[in-house]
Design a protein around this nucleic acid. Sequence first.
DNA 1: CTCGTTCCTTTGACTCCGTCCAATCAACCC
DNA 2: GGGTTGATTGGACGGAGTCAAAGGAACGAG
Lengths: 154, 154
Amino acid sequence: MEGGRPTRLTPDDTAVAGGRLRNAGLRATRPRQTVLALLDGWAGHHAVDDLSAALVDLGHRFPRQSVYNVLDDLVRVGLALPADTGPGRALYERAGDWHHHFVCLDCGAVMDVPCAIGDKPCLDAAVPGAEIDEAQVIFRGRCADCADRGPADA
Amino acid sequence: MEGGRPTRLTPDDTAVAGGRLRNAGLRATRPRQTVLALLDGWAGHHAVDDLSAALVDLGHRFPRQSVYNVLDDLVRVGLALPADTGPGRALYERAGDWHHHFVCLDCGAVMDVPCAIGDKPCLDAAVPGAEIDEAQVIFRGRCADCADRGPADA
DNA sequence: CTCGTTCCTTTGACTCCGTCCAATCAACCC
DNA sequence: GGGTTGATTGGACGGAGTCAAAGGAACGAG
């Protein structure tokens, strides 16, 4: 799997992240650069706590609130995406093609599902008068690993 | 809208609910009968706290945990549905036709969106080896009321 | 009807995620 | 290199959901 959790962030990484931030109209502060660089090098879906822990491992300790602030900003300008997987703690992922998510009911794994359309909104709904921005699909079931392990046990 | 919050629960209501519980393989305990009767007579999507408050108004005070337990059981046997609307507090609704949800980004209103198929899974996904039980769609945008109130203000 | 087993309910405290607020500090513009 | 604007920080708060243990109720058998 490409994009495993980065083991270090080079000055280049943060510099690139800074440019992208400024391009998006955001100030290139250290927390933002760091979080964005981390997210860019780390595929998958990550809870705020996981991101915080990863940052600590990389030598950057930020308060919880800073991570929340940064993620809110990144989502607002489209540099990060909130990964909809239903109730529970929020997950974030780096920006990319519009896609959906499959959630395993057994092990909780989350994986991307390519969207047939690739842009949003990719489905239409019969809601009179409403403006639909996006249609997010959550597939639920049992992933290949769990399906192999047994018909329906715990 | 039919099915506004019930103002009372008759002995008949709870008796009927008891029968449905036993049919589903559950013991017909008082909390279960009461919650199920309330849910059946109350269309829409309700948070656990809202249900608790409604129960108090009806003269039934149950601990939070009892409501959680009952809802878990009802969902497990298919007498209630968790209404997927993304991160945040969990919403529940009475069982019925399989459908999706539209969430207004401005006012937070949740409304049902009929599913074209009406059964699950209503969409397919390219997840090799996985068993897909359901595909839940969350539409996001601005509801008719909010769209009328202004182009894109707060 | 009564007993007994099994399952459910209840109680309280606890954990975790996310938010609010005020004060300090840094980034960008000139 | 200052000044202004905006972001970061830290502590405290609230709310949703969970865990474990003890008491109580529902159903079936006798």
